[in-house]
Computed example of a mutant assay.
Amino acid sequence: MRIVLASSSPSRRMILQNAGVDPVIQPADVDEDALLAATDGSPEEAVATLARAKARAVASQFHDDVVIGGDSMLLIDGRLQGKPHTPETTVARWHEQAGKVAHLLTGHCILHRGQEFVETSTTTVHFAQASDADIAAYAASGEPWQCAGAFTLEALGGWFIDRIEGDPSSVIGLSLPVVRRALYGFGLDASDFWNAEK
């Protein structure tokens, strides 16, 4: 029995590896824009919908394993923001969010032998009033282009986050407490997966 990550996110993989798990990486192929357009609910439900679609997309290949789907978006000024993808969008986002408080929502869907556990974690992020030069340099680095909210907590972006309130692993991309609760709900222990081989 293994943990399967339905994502190519290096940050999510890192969280699991640092926690003693060597996950199977099986990225899900889902149309995130179409799913979001069809979602008529709260921001928390939107990220949960994306996580559920990713987990379900690969679950049939791994019936006896634990499959994790996740997705993160930043809720700021009542709007959800995903990955910026370009340096120009990154700069625009940072000029908008510098000095503000926002909420990083991370949806989780964890599947095991027909059981499904879905939870969205919310972490409050206090953005620094970063200088124009630092915003430009951070955008040019490429690091935040594939990150929800155009920032990382664990790398260069850590310079520009004054503080967070909530689960740090959730901000990085996968909440270990949420995964633990799911495993316990399935009658499993976190330690069952420590240093497991693929």
Rank of each mutant, 00 (worst) to 15 (best):
R2G: 05
S9F: 11
A19H: 14
D22P: 00
V24N: 05
I25G: 10
I25E: 12
P27D: 13
D29K: 12
A34T: 07
L36M: 13
L36T: 01
L36E: 10
A37L: 06
E45D: 13
T49V: 11
R52D: 14
G70D: 00
D71K: 01
S72A: 14
M73F: 15
L75I: 01
I76M: 10
G78C: 05
P84N: 09
T86V: 05
T86G: 05
T86Y: 13
P87R: 03
T89K: 13
T89N: 12
A98K: 14
V101F: 03
V101T: 15
L105M: 04
I110C: 08
T122H: 08
T123F: 13
T123P: 05
V125A: 09
Q129S: 13
I135Y: 06
Y138G: 04
A140R: 13
A140L: 09
W145C: 00
Q146S: 15
G149I: 10
T152A: 14
L153W: 12
L153N: 06
G157P: 07
W159K: 14
G166P: 02
P168E: 04
I172D: 08
I172R: 02
V179L: 14
R181Y: 01
A182N: 08
Y184K: 11
F186C: 09
G187R: 07
L188W: 07
E197Y: 09
